[in-house]
Design a protein around this nucleic acid. Structure first.
Lengths: 218, 218
DNA sequence: GTCAAAGTACACTCACTAGTGCAAGCCTTA
DNA sequence: TAAGGCTTGCACTAGTGAGTGTACTTTGAC
């Protein structure tokens, strides 16, 4: 219909400025409250330009949501690799990993504010788009974590029957707990509480999945 | 300021109709999209009446959020008592409890749709109100679950150092997992998957907290 | 039946928002 | 320098939504 997704239109810098601004404003104000004028002002761009790049407010929102998911997924992948590629002390490494993963929420405040908005809009987003977003973001997080756990299990440190479920459990016991309490960073939580939750979560995870007699033991 | 909270105003049936309608519409459409006219129509009440009962759209929203939290908390308390007052088989009882707790989301669709809206609005809700909501709803859920776990631990079936954390973990591994995947019921999840998640979650919980040698064993 | 409190219908203000049309200006590439 | 795509500013439409004022009717208690 529009053809604007396939053959790119306009100056890329403008487009990027729009997306960045849209992410921030949608995340801060929510979909309905966010005004296209506000986004334009934030982007330092004429409103008309936004409508030259994107057919619709809805379309803009969807595009921003998907693009952001990819970005963060890549960042999380890096964090995983940094902490879980080579295991020294499993508990310590998992704690450090989880702390970094939580820190990502602070590092991408606009994105995670947007996540909250997306979850709120779930019922008003076309199912196909929502599906695509889940696949690009949250879901990929799990699917990428699972292989690491499988590998660690292969080293005899974990005993795992279903790696996907284990990944889900680790996520729930650490990041999800914190995200839920802080509403994805909207409500502050003191550093020491974050640490306590993560530590408790990782220890619980290890009680579920750690091998009874690790390879280093007699 | 208004005095309307302290000395009740107007006919209670009208007030209740408004609250019911507001809960549904806020939950379905989100705060910003929800129109006071829509709520009035849904309640079968004149818009003016709404403004006679509540000073504000915001005020109405806050009132509905708090009232709903109390209602559901009471319902959950009943479910807890039904399943956890007397333990026959711990795993079975916990699974049955969790399944019922998840079913409550379906039983109060309006309320849980509203929960999603509240979480989305977190950043726009006055902190004091948000705090009050958390205390009345989610938080109370935990605090009420903890004593049951403590009691079960006292019977030698669980080994728990921090009952609040244990309650949080049980919640995360079961209901939270499901609520997150279904966006509080907005996206369907087949019955058998629900069952699988709950079962897996409860088993994981027991691996964390079940006593190594229960009292019945030799 | 009377009276007061509460509810209703409706018209209205005011602010704001999505989206469009257009003429003029800018920038880059040839 | 000429051209053509892109951006801009601005005015404009058309719709929507919160909240109010008012005159009138309903309801329930006594």
């Amino acid at each position: 219909m529009t053809g604007r997704q396939t053959e790119p239109y306009g100056r890329p810098d403008k487009r990027q400025a729009i997306m960045r601004a849209a992410r921030r404003v949608f995340g801060r104000d929510g979909y309905a409250r966010a005004g296209v004028d506000t986004i334009a002002a934030q982007a330092g761009v004429s409103k008309r330009t936004i409508y030259n790049h994107f057919t619709d407010k809805q379309h803009l929102f969807e595009t921003v949501a998907l693009e952001g998911a990819h970005e963060v997924t890549a960042a999380i992948a890096q964090i995983m690799d940094r902490h879980l590629h080579k295991i020294v002390d499993l508990e310590e490494d998992l704690i450090a990993f989880s702390l970094d993963r939580v820190a990502a929420v602070t590092a991408f405040p606009d994105h995670f504010a947007l996540v909250r908005t997306i979850e709120a809009e779930a019922a008003h987003i076309p199912p196909a788009i929502l599906r695509a977003w889940i696949d690009a973001g949250p879901q990929t997080g799990h699917l990428r974590l699972a292989p690491y756990l499988r590998r660690i299990a292969g080293q005899g440190l974990l005993e795992i029957d279903d790696a996907d479920r284990a990944a889900a459990h680790l996520t729930l016991l650490t990041i999800t707990d914190i995200n839920q309490q802080t509403f994805y960073g909207a409500v502050p939580l003191p550093e020491e509480k974050v640490r306590a939750i993560i530590t408790g979560g990782v220890r619980a995870f290890l009680r579920i999945y750690a091998t009874a007699s690790p390879p280093g033991s007699p």
